[in-house]
């Protein structure tokens, strides 16, 4: 494997966003790119990352390899990179280590690190292509704000999408709270658009603790996409450049 990223910052942000949810994961490398799928310890949340080969320049992977990496170790090394550094990941065919090289585009500084790999026996889930009842695109910062505001009142949030809009509501010991967003197009600032595509109304309840955790990815993309259907996990998607993505799935709360 040899994969060169223009900005080390991208991988730094991805790992930073998921390291509190999952600890040890396999980075599955093949000629289409680098993928990761891992569930949290409670098995109700799942991270699915895809960094397509096109996100790297160049990208070469001659043989499928799984790089088992402890994310806290990876984060320690990524913190040694400057945000603007060029990052090259390298691994042999049957690797014991993954090699990370940081190059400054402005100076002649070159730093090199090896991280020891681990054998990780990871359960892989088959995630079906789903036609969701509701798909909501909104500013990532807005979603983060709503989750952070509501977690002050309650541990769970009801997300209800209707043709009127999308309502995030919660109730707790001190009282209730709700935020409603309607579809909204801002020609001057398209990054503020809220788009609600609905085939049928849907209402589901989720644990805010996990949603707040997912929102750590807000720095990766201006927009977040929420996809909901009755009785299936919520998909929270941050789209990256070159069709790469960081997706989170969360099982809905169920009644007594």
């Amino acid at each position: 494997l040899e994969a060169r990223l223009e900005q080390a910052n991208l991988l730094k942000k991805v790992v930073d966003a998921i390291k509190d949810l999952v600890q040890d994961c396999n980075f599955d490398c093949n000629d289409s790119g680098i993928a990761l799928q891992a569930m949290d310890n409670s098995h109700v949340a799942l991270v699915s990352m895809m960094l397509k080969a096109e996100s790297f320049s160049p990208f070469r992977c001659d043989r499928n390899i799984a790089l088992g990496i402890n994310l806290s170790s990876l984060m320690k090394v990524l913190r040694c990179a400057q945000n603007e550094d060029i990052l090259t990941l390298k691994a042999d065919d049957a690797p014991d280590v993954v090699n990370l090289v940081f190059e400054s585009s402005e100076s002649d500084r070159l730093s090199e690190y090896d991280i020891k790999l681990m054998d990780i026996d990871q359960e892989h889930l088959g995630i079906p292509e789903t036609e969701y009842s509701a798909t909501i695109s909104m500013p990532a910062a807005e979603f983060q704000r709503i989750c952070r505001d509501l977690i002050a009142l309650s541990e769970s949030v009801a997300i209800e999408a209707t043709k009127e809009g999308v309502k995030f509501s919660c109730s707790g010991d001190i009282g209730n709270g709700a935020v409603t967003l309607r579809s909204h197009t801002n020609v001057e600032k398209p990054e503020l658009n809220v788009d609600i595509a609905l085939s049928e109304p849907v209402a589901l309840t989720f644990s805010l603790k996990y949603l707040v955790n997912f929102c750590k990815a807000s720095g990766l993309s201006g927009t977040v996409k929420l996809c909901l259907s009755s009785e299936v996990p919520l998909l929270v998607e941050y789209t990256l450049a070159s069709n790469s993505y960081l997706r989170f799935y969360l099982a809905p709360k169920i009644g007594d």
Binding site: L125, V232, K253, I254, G255
Partner: peptide, 14 residues
């Protein structure tokens, strides 16, 4: 609402 089911019950094995 109370608990959550494991994601394995929704997604199953590939």
């Amino acid at each position: 609402p109370t608990g959550q089911r494991s994601l394995a019950t929704y997604f199953g094995n590939p």
